[in-house]
Simulated scan of single mutants.
Amino acid sequence: MDRAAMSEKLKKFGPRVTVSVTARDYDTLNVIAGRDDVSVSWVVRRAIDEYLRRHPDPQQTTQERRPGVSERA
């Protein structure tokens, strides 16, 4: 991936995070992603979004809303 493409991805998604998962979880994520025709990254971003919606930041006002994961990539 060239620098311009990387720069565009950073603008679209923000900072990169690296996590390790078990082989079983990885396989499950791949099945879910394939079933929904999305990337594993999209599934993980969606899971993080759902988790953060259930555990709101106590410093955030009620009028501030987290944008949902709508991009399919």
Rank of each mutant, 00 (worst) to 15 (best):
Q59H: 08
V38M: 07
T28I: 12
D27Y: 06
A33R: 01
D25E: 14
A73D: 06
K12P: 08
P58G: 01
V40K: 08
S70T: 14
S41P: 04
T18A: 13
T61Y: 00
R66K: 05
A47C: 06
E8L: 13
R24K: 14
R54C: 14
T28Q: 13
S41F: 00
M1G: 15
T18F: 15
Q60F: 02
R54Y: 04
A47I: 03
V31G: 07
S41V: 04
W42R: 12
V69L: 05
T28M: 12
R24A: 15
D27E: 15
I32Y: 04
G14P: 06
I32K: 11
Y26Q: 11
T22V: 01
R35C: 09
I32W: 03
I48V: 15
V31H: 05
V31C: 07
R16K: 15
V21R: 02
V19N: 02
M6N: 14
K9D: 14
K11A: 13
E64Y: 05
Q60A: 12
R46P: 08
M6I: 06
Y51V: 04
E50L: 12
A4N: 09
E71K: 07
V69A: 05
R45D: 04
M6P: 05
D37R: 15
R72A: 12
R53F: 02
D36S: 09
W42A: 10
L52Q: 09
E8K: 12
Q63T: 03
P15R: 08
L29S: 05
D27F: 10
G14C: 01
T22R: 04
T61M: 00
R35A: 14
K9M: 11
Q63K: 03
T28K: 15
R16V: 10
R66C: 00
V17R: 14
L52H: 09
D2G: 15
H55Y: 07
A5H: 09
A73P: 12
V44C: 06
R53P: 04
P56L: 00
S20H: 07
M1R: 09
T28S: 11
T61S: 13
D49Q: 09
L52D: 07
V69H: 05
V17I: 14
G14S: 05
L29G: 05
R16S: 14
A33Y: 00
L29C: 02
M1T: 10
P58Y: 00
P58L: 00
Y51S: 04
T28W: 13
F13K: 09
R24P: 06
V38S: 03
P15I: 07
G34V: 01
R16F: 14
K9G: 02
R72H: 11
E50K: 13
R35N: 08
E50S: 09
R53N: 11
E8S: 12
S70L: 08
W42Q: 13
D57F: 01
G68S: 06
V38Y: 02
I48A: 11
T62E: 02
T18Y: 13
K9T: 04
E71N: 12
S70P: 02
D27Q: 11
T62P: 11
